[in-house]
Write a protein that binds this DNA or RNA. Structure first.
Length: 868
RNA sequence: GGGUGCAUAGCUCAGCUGGUUAGAGCACUUCGUUUACACCGAAGGGGUCCGGGGUUCGAAUCCCUGUGCACCCACCA
């Protein structure tokens, strides 16, 4: 074993060793029939780009959960895959071919273009998979899936057809976000907003119309069919429900006055012209009121035919012409500058035109007989109440609920080429939906594709063989945990729940663990354009995978963002090396023991053995508890604390001079089991050490998680004694350090232990040997006649040190300590004299405070009693 | 506009249901070649727990309020 751990030397070989063993696939694990399943599906990374640190964090967390459960004896399946990310991927490729060859997708044509996208997707997927492997993920590669591969295409078609047949999926007209330049609809989250200055015109439709409305878009008013006012607005109360015939700039309109509580009474005149065809909220009002819809603007953002001399103009020309005309007629009451947000296309920044268009929708409110006559929305909301699904952290349940409650029908069609093509065919007015194209002539397939979340919404079961009656589906669904980012609760988590209910009538997962984002050290999002990203593969090469994982797992809690910088990773590299050296010491200086045969004989334990044995078993319990509650950071901190502060700094040091029959076994026992506890956090180095320890005969990845020893709880007294000894040693070191006793090994110590005399006497050798620098130690029961230079008090134990000490410094230090103690005593006295405290506080708290007061008093006496 | 979260040591954060002298890691200071480890060991300094109210015997923790920051949703007719 090298003096320092070199991850490069081990990581690749170890990954191959794991993979070749076949144990990433739980079917190959030798488990009893009763073994429970534990499934996680990897949130499929988009094939748009290689992985970043955020993905590394996902892998660290999920691999931890999977490896932990594998060690615990679960049938642990972690299922890999990638997402075709329809729009995003198509965009990347479109941009690329335009930049490289100056061609658009239309130049290439559908088939050729898709070929290009597929090639791109395949090559990125390859990179992604190799990155994931480098991070050490124990994913079952035999089940690798892609949201657009043949199996998933079949599943998606099946889902579409079934939903259509049950009337959950329908084709309808709706106002969508339309980009006149890209000639495509945009999903709500693909719309961006730009602040701008705009003119707000206040005007009347015509002279005989009773009141005025305000708008920034007069050209759309050609399609108005109503005016909406707030129901509690007294000004318009009498008009509600009436219909007016008006002639607006030469066009005849029928305007009905309706009431809607969303109308802001204080904006403009408080009356809003309703244009159902060119505004989403207007369209929603129109649906409610059953208003007529008049289309004004076409797909090139020009005025349609039938609007006299406005037809053919683009929206800006039309706006000007209408304003001019209204001005001539004296109908403009006011023109003011306001700031508003312009909706623009996230891709080309063109202003978006809301247009009505034929789209496919999932009806989230349709009652489904086989789902207890509940709708998908109702089902998806119920799972929170019934606790069938739990969110970690809990607060995100609210976000999920709020979003669900306001959910409208989900538009699943997209006007792009890359993705699952909609399995619908049209012939004149006929529509056919099916798994295959209809046989007869004259049918034309829908040009559109499905929203990428349609296929990823099916991810938990499409990856397990649905719709076939597959064994995997019975065995591994529902999955146990969905681990993902909080930013896609609405986009993904909610869809998965609805899709799974529809297909399987069950939840897709039992728990949702949400991680935060990985930010740079200044708290900024890592992005390629800013150049502040850290590449996980670079980090792996520089510090090793384990260090990277630790820095992503420790010092972070669920749902919170994580600021990461290299210093943090370096400090975990140091820790990895520490555990390497701890092991190296045991492996080279302590004989191997077959733990199956050699059982620990606790009767022969010394105090230090009992102490380390007890706290190690306590650690197992704590780690299990923390992990089952998703407190990865706390588990990791406890492990680190035990490994470094208890095991290495105390027990290993003690073992160098305290030789007894049990030490050899115990050192092997703790190292062996400690590696198991650490394995989910740092799989590579723990496995590397395990291989050295067991001469390549056993694999840590499939070892058995340690059981808590029943006797471990019986050593309370020994733990107390050991802690006392440790405190004494620390006090001696402290006093020695402050006083700079030189040379260090010429101190004589006199220790007077009252109650603990026997225990201290027994452990004399520890005090002498553990870096206290004591050459002459004298432990007595009673030290009344001794006049020495007292250095420390631990509980009831006094420690005198005799040597070259700096009296002035010691005096100052003591004064400070006295002051501190006096303050404490004063506070405790006051508290205990308070009748209300004594009456109302729980008994154990009062007792604790009393004990503390007594202890402080004794210490104070001791300190004051000394004269120089 | 609506919502959520955060504010604790120089930095990054823990602190679960109110009760230790408020913790850890990093950084900092001093000392140090003892059977693994300088990617190390020993010791130390450093905090009005954002401000202001309240509830309580008792608040970093619960409630109200103010300030600053981050994010999500809606969208401005």
């Amino acid at each position: 074993m090298d003096k320092a751990y070199n991850p490069q030397k081990y990581e690749n070989d170890i990954y191959d060793y794991w993979q070749e063993s076949g144990f990433f696939n739980p079917d190959n694990l030798d488990l009893p029939k009763s073994a429970k399943n534990y499934t996680i599906v990897l949130p499929p990374p988009n094939v748009t780009d290689k992985l970043h640190m955020g993905h590394a964090s996902i892998i660290a967390i999920e691999d931890l959960l999977i490896r932990y459960h594998r060690l615990k004896g679960y049938k642990a399946l972690w299922l890999p895959g990638t997402d075709h990310a329809a729009i995003a991927t198509q965009n990347v490729v479109e941009k690329r071919i335009y930049k490289e060859r100056g061609e658009t997708r239309h130049d290439l044509g559908r088939e050729k273009f898709l070929q290009e996208v597929n090639n791109f997707a395949l090559s990125t997927q390859k990179t992604i998979i190799s990155q994931i492997k480098k991070m050490g993920a124990s994913l079952d590669w035999s089940r690798l899936a892609f949201t657009l591969d043949d199996t998933r295409q079949k599943a998606v078609k099946e889902m579409f057809v079934r939903m259509y047949n049950e009337g959950v999926l329908y084709r309808g007209e709706r106002v969508v976000n339309w980009c006149p330049r890209c000639h495509s609809t945009l999903a709500d989250d693909e719309v961006e907003y730009k602040g701008q200055k705009a003119n707000l015109y206040t005007f009347k439709y015509s002279k005989d119309f009773p009141f005025a409305i305000s708008t920034t878009r007069p050209e759309t008013k050609l399609g108005d069919t109503a005016i909406a006012v707030n129901p509690s607005d007294k000004r318009y109360k009498d008009y509600i429900g009436k219909t007016y015939k008006v002639n607006f700039v030469g066009i005849d309109l029928n305007i009905k006055v309706i009431a809607d509580k969303n109308v802001d009474m204080n904006f403009g005149t408080g009356a809003l012209g309703v244009t159902p065809a060119h505004s989403l909220i207007d369209w929603q009002m129109a649906q409610k009121e059953g208003l007529e819809m008049i289309k004004v603007i076409d797909e090139d953002a020009k005025i349609k035919d039938g609007f006299k001399n406005f037809s053919g103009l683009n929206v800006y020309e039309a706006r000007k012409k209408i304003i001019d005309k209204l001005t001539d007629e004296g109908l403009i009451l006011e023109t003011e500058d306001i700031n508003n947000n312009l909706s623009i296309c996230y891709r080309c920044d063109s202003p978006i035109e809301p247009l009505p268009s034929k789209q496919w929708f999932i009806n989230v409110d349709k009652k489904i007989p086989r789902l207890d006559n509940q709708s998908l929305k109702e089902k998806a909301l119920a799972v929170i109440k019934t606790k069938e699904i739990n969110f970690v952290p809990e607060r995100f349940e609210k976000r999920y609920k709020d979003w669900m409650e306001n959910l409208h029908d989900w538009c699943v069609s997209r006007q792009i080429w890359y993705g699952h093509r909609i399995p619908a065919w049209y012939r004149d007015d006929e529509v056919y939906v099916g798994r295959e194209a209809p046989k007869e002539d004259g049918w034309k397939q829908d040009e559109d594709t499905l929203d990428t979340w349609f296929s990823s919404g099916m991810w938990t079961f499409s990856t397990l063989g649905w719709p076939e009656k597959a064994n995997d589906l019975d065995l591994y669904h529902p999955t146990q945990v969905l681990e993902t980012g909080y930013e896609i609760i609405t986009l993904w988590v909610s869809r998965m729940i609805m899709m799974s209910y529809f297909a399987l009538e069950e939840v897709p997962f039992e728990n949702v663990y949400l991680h935060g984002m990985v930010l740079d050290k200044k708290g900024k999002k890592m992005s390629k354009s800013k150049g502040n990203g850290i590449d996980p593969v670079d980090i792996k090469e520089k510090y090793g995978s384990d260090s990277a994982r630790l820095s992503l797992l420790i010092g972070n809690t669920a749902g919170n963002d994580l600021k990461l910088d290299e210093e943090k990773i370096a400090s975990f590299r140091n820790f990895v090396n520490k555990i390497w050296n701890i092991s190296r010491y045991i492996i080279s200086f302590v004989d191997r023991v077959d733990l199956e045969k050699e059982k620990l004989n606790k009767k022969d334990f010394t105090i230090s053995d009992k102490w380390i044995f007890s706290i190690f078993n306590e650690l197992i319990k704590e780690v299990e508890l923390d992990l089952s509650n998703y407190r990865f950071s706390q588990a990791g901190e406890k492990l680190r604390n035990f490994t470094w502060n208890d095991f290495a700094d105390w027990y290993l040091e003690i073992s160098k001079f305290e030789k007894n029959s049990q030490k050899q076994i115990l050192l092997n026992y703790i190292l062996d089991n400690l590696l198991k506890l650490w394995h989910p956090f740092m799989p590579f180095v723990s496995e590397a050490i395990y291989q050295e320890l067991h001469k390549n005969k056993k694999m840590l990845m499939i070892a058995k998680w340690p059981e808590v020893d029943v006797d471990a709880g019986n050593f309370k007294k020994e733990i107390e004694s050991m802690n006392l000894i440790k405190d004494i040693i620390i006090k001696i070191r402290e006093a020695r350090s402050i006083n700079k006793v030189e040379p260090a090994n010429k101190i004589k110590a006199l220790i007077y232990g009252h109650k603990h005399f026997e225990q201290i006497k027994e452990q004399e050798h520890l005090i002498k040997n553990l870096k206290t620098g004591i050459s002459d130690l004298d432990i007595q029961e009673n030290g009344e006649d001794i006049k020495g230079e007292i250095k420390a008090t631990v509980g009831e134990v006094e420690i005198f040190l005799i040597g070259a000490i700096d009296k002035e410094k010691e005096k100052n230090r003591r004064e400070k300590e006295i002051k501190n103690l006096e303050k404490q005593v004063e506070f405790l006295n006051k508290q205990l004299q308070n009748k209300e405290f004594v009456d109302k506080a729980p008994e154990e708290v009062v007792k604790k405070q009393k004990d503390k007061l007594n202890q402080f008093k004794v210490e104070l006496e001791k300190l004051k009693d000394i004269d120089f």
